[in-house]
Simulated scan of single mutants.
Amino acid sequence: MSEVDDAIAAARASWARISEPGAAPLPRSSVRSRAAAGRRLKRIGMAAVAILIAGLVAGLVLPSGIGIMGFFLILCAMVAATVLLSVWPATTERAPPPPDKLRTVDIKALPAQTERWLNAQRMMLPAPAQHLVDRIGDRLGTLSPQLARVEPEGEAAQDIRRLVGEQLPAFVGDYARVPEPLRRTERNGRTPDAALVDGLALIEREIAGMTERLAQGDLDSLQTRSRYLELKYKGDSEG
């Protein structure tokens, strides 16, 4: 089985877990999609209420009311508003930052900026790579809060910047420049699609490792405090 097949199987397994009761939280991309759908429905509801209020006011103000034609116009306005707001973007997305900017952006904003850039490249990637892009987005979301305590010029920050702000965009950029027909052509025993999936999987694991290393102090502190509480209070409660 190829690496691409492995990634496809992993994606299917993740979808199965999401579909089961008590499944893990949805990826950030799914959460964003649901939030956008919620905002769109809210706008449609508000527009319908506004149209109904306008029709009611018109019926009270006009001497002869709005009549059958007025009701018809209100209905047409509600249908038109629903159609328009269904296709109108739920949010106004800013253009993703260029890769060169990611090299110099503030370290605290780097994960969010890189995730935004990566999401903009998502549709040109093969399906297994899109699954990995979602996972990398989740990793970047977990990493981001920890960078508030990282020294911007420290070794940890530099390692993160090299991987997240330089290597990741450069790697995806290299793939994007490969002509589409050649992406599934084997070269040196591996296709560009498979190389992309392998590389993204490696980056995802490394970001997870960086996050764990940054959290090591807090994990040690939590474990130490937990032991202290057990020694201090567990014996008293049993006694």
Rank of each mutant, 00 (worst) to 15 (best):
V197P: 01
R183M: 05
R103I: 07
G209S: 14
P97H: 05
G22L: 13
Q146K: 11
D106H: 11
L110F: 12
S33A: 14
E212H: 07
D100K: 07
P21W: 03
R205P: 07
L60S: 08
G70K: 00
A77H: 00
R28Q: 13
R94I: 06
E115C: 03
I136Y: 02
I66V: 10
P99N: 04
A24C: 00
T191R: 03
T224P: 00
E204K: 03
L202W: 03
D220K: 12
D193C: 09
E238W: 09
L110A: 10
L118V: 09
A54N: 05
S64D: 14
P97Y: 01
H131R: 09
A112F: 02
D193G: 08
G217P: 04
V61P: 02
T104R: 13
A47L: 09
I18Y: 09
K232R: 15
G189M: 10
F72M: 02
V79M: 08
R43Y: 07
E166S: 07
T82S: 13
F72L: 04
D236E: 08
K101F: 14
A156H: 08
R17S: 10
A47M: 09
T114L: 07
T142Q: 10
R34W: 11
L41C: 11
L110R: 04
I203L: 14
L214K: 05
E238R: 15
A127K: 11
A7L: 06
M69W: 02
A7S: 03
V164A: 02
G55H: 04
R213D: 08
R213G: 12
K234W: 04
